[in-house]
Amino acid sequence: MTAGATGGWHVATVVGARPLTRSARELTLSVPGLEASSPGQHLDVRLTAPDGYQATRAYSLAATGQAERADLVVDRVPDGEVSPYLVDVARPGDLMEVRGPLGGYFVWRPGDPGPVLLVAGGSGVVPLLAMLRARRASSSRAPFRLVCSVRGPADAIGREEIDEPTPGVEVHWVFSRESPPGWPTRPRRVADDDLAAPGFTAADGPDVFVCGPTGFVEAAAALLTGLGHAPDRVRTERFGGA
């Protein structure tokens, strides 16, 4: 066993599974020896096939702060190697291995006074949901604005929970392909107007966290620096498919 920063691999047992959308599922794992995580961190998940073939993928933690437990949200990538198993097949009692909690850069600390601007593309909302959950669970009064871009209402992960009214937290949805019935705007991509809100402009100096697929992250980061946010205040995390 190596003695690096990750502490190596831990055996994890699935103890809960909850569908969130037609393609995403929240999996709860029991992981003896796993340290408590911080909002924004992720885990590496390793699956081993009967023939010994192994596949490893990184998944963000949707809830943090509790040792020996991991709440992952996994969105199915249709031709993926790992995510279809985790979304469609894994059930309580199944075993896998995890490494983490990982990452120190894309992390919000509840002691930070804020403001905080969160920008999510698709299932990139997961680490930002962890930050939102941590804020709601703490005494933090940091102003939060969460901008969530999703294809359509059926793809919105955790929308009811995210929309729960909370003083100091504002949520803004952008539908890119299909708007809900009666929604005031047509489907469109995230634009300057979505990102520039009073209290969260470049002059307010917010900590900005952007997470999503690579194309989304790069487009959003370009808009944000165009609005005057210092590039090093815009923290990004890209995820791929599999």
């Binding site: 920063a5 992720h42 490893t56 990184a58 990982l102 990452g103 890209r238 599999a242």
Partner: peptide
């Protein structure tokens, strides 16, 4: 596959660096 960023390598590098 589009490139990711250094966040994605935290677990791998953590096996080598403390």
């Amino acid at each position: 596959d589009a490139p990711l960023d250094g966040n994605a390598v935290a677990g791998l590098l953590g096996e080598a660096f403390a």
